[in-house]
């Protein structure tokens, strides 16, 4: 039972990690590419880390929760780096599929 849960979490996590990178490679302008890694990859790695916590808690003699630290850290930092990247891209006037609003150009 626990093995099925672990396998499910690991495969789900890997699939989301892959989809995040696929978005990075496949989409057509910088701003849309930004969406893949910030969301899909974060959840994917989160799933893998939860799988790791479950694995080591049931294998070892004591509870292992330190994986939660990386998950928490990634969930806090992912939007910050996405915001900074988008801000840098707007600053450099990268070409975009969507019209850049006037408010961003000041």
């Amino acid at each position: 039972m626990q093995e099925y849960l672990l396998s499910f979490l690991i495969v789900t996590g890997a699939v989301f990690t892959f989809i995040g990178s696929l978005g990075l490679a496949r989409l057509r302008d910088f701003y849309t590419r930004l969406h893949g890694p910030t969301k899909a990859t974060t959840l994917g790695v989160g799933c893998l880390l939860i799988a790791s916590a479950v694995f080591f808690s049931t294998q070892g003699e004591q509870l292992s929760l330190h994986e939660m630290l990386i998950t928490l850290f990634l969930f806090i930092t992912a939007p910050v780096s996405a915001h900074l990247l988008a801000k840098a891209a707007l600053h450099l006037r990268l070409k975009s599929l969507a019209a850049i609003p006037k408010k961003a150009e000041e």
């Binding site: 990075l24 910088f30 590419r33 990247l85």
Partner: peptide
Amino acid sequence: TPDRILALDT
């Protein structure tokens, strides 16, 4: 450049 930084981030 931002594309490359995003790739490194990923």
